[in-house]
Amino acid sequence: MNLIEVRNLHFSYQNDHDVLKGIDLTFDHRSTAIIGQNGAGKTTFVKLLKGLLKPVTGDILVNGINTKETSVAKLAAQIGLVFQNPGDQIFKSKVYDEIIVGPRNIGMPADEAENMTKRALEAVGLGSKINHNPYDLSFAERKLVSIASILAMDPRIVILDEPTIAQDDPGKQLIKDLIKKLESEGKLVISILHDMDFVSETFTRTIVFQHGRVMIDDDTKSVFSQTDVLREAYLEPPHITQLGNRLGYSETYLTAEQFVNDLLMEKKLKSNIN
């Protein structure tokens, strides 16, 4: 079943030029990365999915509900959006209080709200900091607070705008595991990203935006095999893919582990033949 359907979507901010020029997409539960240059229309697109903006022409159906016919607050239980800057939402003086705001807003029963809040905090690894003031935490930790505040509302669809900004490697690892876990639970994760290495290791499907259009939409491996098209969109394949290409392998590698395994296998085969 499609969780989101986008039909012939056009959008412009001030009737001058279209930011989005005719987008048709459907999303199932596969985790999906959206990549592309700044100004390609990625953030505008996810705001439309979330209902914060309404299509100029075309329709967006989220779980069968047309975003034009409902309010953002009513959609909140279905679809969550984590903004790029956690400072755009945090206003409580305790991490726990901040995260339980969303569940309460959407009318979740008290005990369930508490339960979901605790689970969300564990999921982002902040279980030990529930009583801290969010502004005493680092920027990267505040970002995790904002992710947890969306997870706590238990939406079927989670959108992340640049989740890896300012994260160190352990932070990225945590977010990667989290996205994979959500995908395995049947949830749809859509994320805007600039870090191609992170995309290749994490997402099942990748969509390339350029100049308000979808340039490529495929499984991540096929997308990163199209080096020339990527370059046109000012993107480079992940480092590991570049390494494989330089060494002349036809396989598009997405992780170091896969690359190492294949080469060791090749070595083994050759030594067996010898």
Binding site: D168, D169, P170, P238, H239, I240, A256, E257, F259, V260
Partner: peptide
């Protein structure tokens, strides 16, 4: 390095694996 919160470049990880 991983214990210090740093992942070496992917090239180094490949070389270590091989």
């Amino acid at each position: 390095l991983e214990e210090r919160g740093v992942r070496p470049p992917v090239f180094t990880r490949v070389a270590k694996g091989l």
